[in-house]
Amino acid sequence: MNVAGKEARAGEAAMLKQAQADMRAAASELRVWAESARNASDQRRRLGWAAAGGVLAGAALWTTLPGVVARAAPASWSWPERIAARGLRLDMWEAGERLLSRSDVERWRTVVLANRMLQDNREDIVRCRQMAAKAAKAVRCTIVIKADASTQKYRSMWSKL
């Protein structure tokens, strides 16, 4: 019975050693999985920071690079003016008028009034310039300024001209 007991205990000891080895292997595998999960979390965090950095760098380039390139282009291409017009969502003429009118209201009113006088007296001014060219000196000419609602609006401007 002693031998049978020893064999039974030896079998149990072998099973216990096998169970311990299996337990160590499972614990080792769990450690690997936990480390892998920790690494994945760290990678996601780093990827988030890299994405945020990329967005910031892209925004910085997006705001500065077009202006640098536009100013480096030949002036005849009018890239800065086109960018300004596109930013205002207007064609270049209307964008220019808007920028001028917002920049200095009094000077803009002067331009508008001078343009109105030129348009209203175009033929007289052409004739007067021809007479000045023919005489090769300054000549006096008469123009007509209409009194309409828009003229009354800028009455104070007329006194400054």
Rank of each mutant, 00 (worst) to 15 (best):
N2S: 13
A4C: 10
A4T: 15
G5E: 13
K6F: 14
D22V: 12
A26V: 15
A27H: 06
R31T: 02
V32R: 07
W33E: 15
A34C: 05
A37D: 13
A37Q: 06
N39G: 03
A40I: 13
D42F: 13
R44Q: 07
R45A: 10
W49L: 15
V55S: 08
A60C: 03
L61F: 10
L61H: 07
P66V: 12
V68D: 04
V69S: 04
A72K: 01
S76C: 02
S78A: 14
E81A: 09
R82N: 06
R82W: 06
R82Q: 08
L90I: 02
E97S: 13
L99H: 02
L99D: 01
R109A: 11
V111E: 09
V111S: 08
L113H: 01
M117Y: 02
M117C: 10
M117A: 08
L118R: 04
D120G: 05
D120I: 13
D120A: 06
N121V: 09
N121A: 06
N121I: 12
E123F: 08
C128Y: 02
C128R: 01
A135M: 11
K137V: 02
A138S: 01
C141A: 11
V144R: 04
I145H: 08
A149L: 13
A149D: 15
S156L: 14
W158C: 03
K160R: 09
K160Y: 04
